[in-house]
């Protein structure tokens, strides 16, 4: 059996980053992966417009755009009707934006990647998001992929759930 393959030729990606050169760089990587369509936004307003109009299949969003933080945009996307609300969202954090990533994760991001993202890392993360069967959790306070996705028992914490004892995922 050959190596696993990923076919992104029909996938539409929305990429939002404030810096035009960084957008170009990441877009080149995505083209190298065979991504079908890449649309780009430089701020939150453009992103909202494109999200509503184009209904992308995956979003890559910088942790802080000039006019808004990614966490606010993610919370907004998660409130949209299906299928948009379930769109996979990867947050790209610049070195100075690392303080914002917890908020992005709690707003419902699928993954956070620290820039600079190497081609290897970006491909592996996209493949992971594509292949993972993480459930989406919806309750009064949160809509997003289950944040408890690491297999194994919690580290140095008292187990509170039945499933923690066996280390099986909840």
């Amino acid at each position: 059996m050959g190596q696993p393959r990923l076919n992104l030729s029909k996938v539409r990606c929305l990429l939002a980053d404030r810096d035009v050169f960084t957008r170009g760089l990441i877009a080149q990587m995505l083209r190298g992966f065979g991504m079908g369509t890449i649309q780009m936004a430089s701020n939150g307003e453009q992103l909202r417009e494109l999200v509503t109009k184009e209904c992308p299949d995956v979003c890559l969003i910088e942790a802080a755009l000039p006019d808004i933080e990614a966490s606010e945009l993610i919370a907004w996307i998660r409130k949209q009707p299906e299928p948009l609300r379930f769109v996979p969202i990867i947050v790209l954090s610049g070195y100075t934006q690392l303080r914002l990533v917890t908020a992005a994760r709690d707003a419902g991001a699928n993954l956070v990647i620290r820039k600079p993202a190497s081609a290897q890392m970006l491909f592996d993360r996209l493949a992971w998001v594509a292949n993972s069967r993480r459930p989406f959790i919806e309750n009064d306070n949160f809509l997003g992929p289950d944040r408890r996705f690491r297999k194994g028992p919690p580290a140095k914490a008292k187990s509170r759930r039945k499933t923690d004892v066996t280390g099986e995922p909840a």
Binding site: K10, N131, I137
Partner: peptide
């Protein structure tokens, strides 16, 4: 709990595409 199917996840199962 939702288990949504996305076009990205369909891409992982589609014919063709590229290896890592």
């Amino acid at each position: 709990l939702h288990f949504p199917r996305t076009r990205l996840s369909e891409g992982a199962r589609a014919f063709g595409g590229v290896t890592r």
